[in-house]
Every structure is written in C-alpha cells, then in structure tokens.
Computed example of a mutant assay.
Amino acid sequence: MSGTGSGTHDGGRVHAEGDFGWHLGVLLSAYQGSVAPLLGELPHATRGYQILAAVVHGDQPTQAALAAHLGIDRTVMTYVIDDLVEAGLVERRLNPADRRARKIVATPQGARTLADLEERVRQAEDGLLDALSAQERAAFRLLLRRTACRLRNVEPAADPCTAAESALKDIPAPR
C-alpha cells in the first residue's frame, strides 16, 4: 500500500471510495496493538487465543481438522498445541470416532482463561470501533464474520459462523 492510495482527504475526512486495503490494514494494526498486550502470558499470543477460542467454542474432531479450520500449517499447529498443553489450557484426547486421532479439548483452566480474555478483547474491540454505535458495531461484526466465513469456504455442517449469524439475525441494520 502506498501513501498515495485512492482515498483522498478533505478537512481530515476520508472519501468513501478510499483504499479498502488501507482501511483494513489500519484496523488490523490497531487491533493487534490493542489486543496483544491483553493476552499476557498466553502462549503464542493472538494465534494461541484463536486456537483456544476455536477449541472452546467449536467441535473440530482432530488436531488436523482444527489446523485446517483455522488455516494454520499442521506442523506449526503441533508446536502451538504443545505449548498450550504445557500451560495447562488444553489437552489431547483420543477421538472416540477414530482412536488413531487426537481431539484437542480445553481444560477447565483453559475455559476460564478464555472467558477472561474474551471479555478483555471485546472491550478492546469496542474501543477500536467507538466511532460506531452499538448497533453499527454489531452489524459490522456480523458482516465481517459472514465475509470471512464465505472466503474460508467453511463447511455448513461444522460452521460456527452460521450459528453466530443466527444469533445476531435480529440485530437491526444501521441507518
């Protein structure tokens, strides 16, 4: 992204047709800067948080399926899971459907840790999105989730996004 993107400024305001990539980059950078310090001693910071959240809220049958769902290389996933196990946040269990495979499950400590982190991360996200009303933030999250799930081509049967969209379907669109 260059400093001369398609978005132009007039009196401190960016035109609506501004550079989409620049907007995403600014938001991602601000997100990382706000959330990373909240993750404290969590192994692998943001990646560890995403894995822990997927383990607590999802139902991936194997470590390989978890890696594929999150788009993480399987060999990298092994190291991250090892560190989360060592921290007492997750454990590997035999998959009842396939005893050769291991399913990653959260420990009680892992579930408590995630609940605490989710609250702090949500507050940081709300701070980043404070230019939006509560309804606009909810709509933004819904639209972002829908777009990300479609791009990841998430399977409908294992799609946490569909459940989240259903839960948020009654939120009125911003005016």
Rank of each mutant, 00 (worst) to 15 (best):
R13N: 02
L128E: 03
T46C: 01
T8P: 00
L84C: 12
P108F: 06
R145E: 10
T147P: 00
H44A: 03
Q32I: 08
E41T: 12
Q63N: 08
I81P: 01
P61G: 05
G12F: 04
P37R: 02
L132V: 00
L24D: 06
P61S: 05
G5P: 00
A134M: 07
I51L: 14
I81A: 02
D116R: 15
V14A: 08
V80G: 01
L114K: 02
Y49Q: 01
I51S: 06
R13M: 12
R152M: 09
R102Q: 11
A124F: 05
A124D: 00
T113H: 11
V55D: 10
E91P: 03
H57A: 13
H9G: 02
V105C: 03
V26W: 03
A65F: 02
E41R: 13
Y31D: 00
Y49W: 09
R122G: 13
D126V: 00
R74W: 00
Q32S: 13
A139C: 03
V55Y: 09
A64V: 14
V35H: 04
D98S: 12
G71R: 06
L142A: 14
A53G: 13
D116I: 08
H57M: 06
R74F: 11
H69E: 11
D126M: 05
S34E: 12
Y31L: 11
A139Q: 08
A87E: 10
S6Q: 11
V35F: 03
R145N: 02
F20L: 15
Q109A: 15
N153T: 06
R102T: 03
L143I: 09
G58Q: 04
V56H: 10
I72W: 02
D10R: 15
E91L: 12
G5K: 03
R122A: 15
G127T: 07
T107E: 07
G7H: 02
A64C: 05
A148Q: 11
G40R: 10
T62R: 08
R93H: 03
C149T: 11
M77D: 05
E86H: 13
D116K: 15
G127W: 06
A115N: 07
A54H: 10
D126G: 10
S34G: 13
H9V: 15
R93D: 07
R99E: 07
K103E: 13
Q32E: 15
R150L: 14
Q63A: 14
L143V: 14
L66Y: 01
S6H: 12
D19Q: 06
M77T: 09
S133Q: 12
L144G: 10
A97Q: 14
Q63C: 06
P43R: 08
L94A: 11
T147M: 09
A106F: 04
E125M: 12
L66H: 02
A134F: 08
L27N: 03
P96M: 01
A134S: 12
D82Y: 07
I104L: 06
E119F: 06
A124M: 04
G127L: 07
R47W: 09
R141A: 15
E86V: 07
S133A: 13
Y49L: 15
R141E: 10
A68S: 15
P43K: 07
G88H: 11
R47C: 09
A131F: 15
D98M: 01
R13L: 14
F140N: 02
A101L: 07
